[in-house]
Design a protein around this nucleic acid. Structure first.
Length: 375
RNA sequence: GGGGAGAUACCGAAGCGGUCAAACGGGGCAGACUGUAAAUCUGUUGGCUCAGCCUUCGUAGGUUCGAAUCCUGCUCUCCCCA
């Protein structure tokens, strides 16, 4: 994998670049739609590619391991073949599930013992087997197995948690480096910077991950309950310390505003369930502001969902989409998800253009005001 | 013609003398959602000059300190037998 940093802006840390992988290039900053169980919920890969213009999508180690199971994915020839997505894929390691599954898991030095949310069966994730599973899934970018520290953790816990993540990272790289890709193309391992809301810990984490000459670096443990200003502050601390010539990935973020603010702070890659999950639940992100399409005021509004939208679904009317969502029609979820994803991709693409043109910051400041508006 | 059952808030449906403005579902309205245990979850749903008051349980009366709940008349629905 290769990263070519094209430009940085003078009055901010925002940057534009190109990542080259075995499955094609990714123009950064980029948003990566989340396809947890091997599918971006409700969206065909055809539309992902042709309409939404996604360049890379996510899969999830935990979910794919439990179902359908790595043996089936291996038999398929890897996730790209299994789900018919021939562009880059990134898999999350399951670290976030270790965090979000709460009381059905237990952390030890060895790894995370957890119960399947599907059938309650017991499983063990270790840095080693998570690397092996991700080798089998065959993602272009695989994530280190970490503990996603809660946003409200105290210093003592956060420090302990970071140290565990660091020891696990060493083991991840050791295993990763002693194994080979299974399908003939290169894979890259991204370490994850933890340290919760503590600047001091984040700096330690950054210095640690830098000791590995990784193809890219992720920042995790944000947007997990801490105040937004803290998230921005920590993002800034992290990007300031990370290598310039490698992509930086802010995991799990976020709202359109979060994304623009984080691009300004030097982030290149994002993923978030928000466009799809909130879309299914009736929330639309548009260039004019946020729409809750379930609200009664749209019931007789026959204007397009987003007149400036780039997706073909944007020509459906608000009244029709409201009807579909209210009626529980699956097409409603699909249209809303597709619109939101197309909007997110438009947003990062436009941000990129503005960075390349040198007028990112002024554009961003205007956009942020609009994007916060509730229509 | 004879016998029986029933009418409760937007809909369905509990309640069967006080703790009932009335359970529960649905529908309506609103909110939440950030590396997806989410096509999920939460709140609210008679009115008002709102820690109180007013109007509501088919309808008109009655019994009672007190009724959606008991009694009588009326109206309407449904079922069975002729």
């Amino acid at each position: 994998m290769d990263f070519n940093l094209l430009t940085t802006t003078e009055n901010s840390r925002a940057r534009a670049g190109v990542i080259t992988t075995s499955h094609g290039t990714i123009e950064t900053p980029i948003f990566m739609p989340v396809g947890t169980a091997g599918s971006v919920k409700g969206i065909h890969t055809h539309d992902l590619k042709e309409d939404i213009k996604a360049q890379i999508i996510l899969g999830n180690t935990y979910h794919l391991y439990l179902r359908p199971g790595t043996d089936i994915i291996e038999k398929a020839g890897g996730l790209h073949k299994f789900n018919r997505w021939d562009k880059p894929i990134l898999t999350d390691s399951g670290g976030f599930q270790v965090f979000s599954l709460g009381d059905i898991r237990k952390l030890t030095e060895e790894g995370a013992r957890f119960q399947s949310h599907i059938d309650g069966s017991y499983h063990m994730f270790t840095p080693e087997n998570v690397m092996d599973i991700q080798r089998t899934i065959g993602a272009d970018i695989v994530m280190a197995f970490d503990e996603c520290t809660p946003g409200n953790a105290d210093f003592v816990y956060a420090k302990k948690s970071l140290e565990l993540t660091q020891r696990w990272l060493d083991r991840c790289f050791t295993r990763f480096n002693e194994t080979q890709p299974k399908y003939g193309y290169e894979q890259s391992l991204f370490p994850i910077v933890q340290g919760s809301t503590f600047t001091e810990l984040r700096k330690i984490a950054v210095n640690h991950v830098k000791t590995f000459d990784a193809d890219g670096y992720a920042i995790g443990g944000l947007s997990v309950g801490e105040p937004e200003e803290v998230m921005y502050e920590i993002t800034e601390v992290a990007t300031a310390g990370l290598p310039e010539n490698k992509p930086r990935y802010l995991m799990g973020v976020g709202t359109p505003v979060n994304i623009l603010e984080s691009i300004e702070r030097g982030i290149d890659m994002f993923d978030c369930v928000m466009p799809t999950r909130n879309g299914r639940n009736g929330m639309l992100f548009t260039s004019e502001g946020i729409i809750n399409i379930k609200n009664k005021k749209w019931d007789n509004d026959h204007s397009p969902i987003d007149p400036n939208g780039t997706s073909f679904v944007d020509q459906y009317s608000k009244a029709y989409l409201r009807h579909l969502i209210i009626s529980g029609e699956m097409l409603g979820s699909q249209i809303a998800s597709q619109h939101n994803l197309a909007f997110y991709l438009w947003l990062v693409k436009t941000a990129r253009e503005k960075i390349l043109n040198g007028d990112f910051v002024s554009w961003k400041n205007e956009m942020v005001i609009k994007l916060k508006e509730r229509l």
